[in-house]
Design a protein around this nucleic acid. Structure first.
Length: 205
DNA sequence: TGCCAGGCCCTCTTTAGGGCCTT
């Protein structure tokens, strides 16, 4: 599989359109089933962190106060990702922050997003739920550190993505699993997983 | 925590509503 960037944001809240900003980002680069590189940084976006977010993530106002500005961190992160296609757990959330922060520095996203949660709903339908931590435990993957910190969550999402690729390759006897196939699967109706993979294989055989 | 989203899925559905998942 091509090199893919698995990203995770910690933020001040859920809604960039209402002023929420990132406090931390991590990017885990994976290729051929292995982690090959990583980037992580806390960032200062000039927005106060609530007590709830500090209790959730452990990231304090003091920590971001001494961190580099969000614009600098996002430029570094965008350069690190380059043209690689992206993956995030519940990607609709990270995609909104990624696109909003890139717009702030005058850039636009180049790679498509795949979502490990949507993929897990199709490939691991019997999991108790499809939270990142639950899926990591369900699949027997190693916990990568403290939940709700960007690097640990991105690392676990990366291992989950690799696991889902392996499940897909094994189930459908695929030599390689492309990021494009992942985005096709997550867009297909849940009950049409088999048909979606078959169509993809026929089109690119 | 606030009661601010969005895309997906399920069902007591389709002229709808609620839960999941992310911080």
């Amino acid at each position: 599989m091509e090199t893919v960037a698995v990203i995770d944001f910690e933020t001040t809240g859920l809604y960039p359109q209402y002023g929420d900003r990132p406090t931390e980002i991590a990017v885990i680069m994976i290729r051929d089933g292995e982690v090959i590189d990583r980037y992580q940084s806390i960032m200062n976006a000039g927005v106060r962190i609530s007590g709830f977010i500090t209790s959730l993530t452990g990231i304090t106002n003091q920590m971001v106060h001494s961190a580099p500005p969000a614009e600098r961190v996002m430029r570094e992160a965008a350069k690190f990702v380059g043209d690689a296609p992206l993956v995030a757990h519940n990607a609709s959330f990270d995609r909104r922050f990624w696109d909003t922060e890139l717009e702030r520095i005058g850039r636009t996203r180049r790679g498509a997003f795949a979502c490990s949660m949507l993929l897990a709903r199709r490939l691991l339908p019997d999991a108790p739920n499809h939270k990142l931590g639950t899926l990591v435990a369900y699949a027997g993957l190693p916990a990568a550190g403290v939940y709700h910190r960007a690097e640990a969550d991105a690392e676990m999402a990366a291992h989950l993505t690799i696991h889902l690729e392996n499940q897909l390759a094994e189930r459908f006897s695929l030599g390689t699993v492309t990021h494009d196939l992942l985005t096709q699967i997550q867009k297909a109706p849940k009950h049409q997983l088999v048909r979606c993979v078959e169509r993809y294989c026929q089109a690119y055989a």
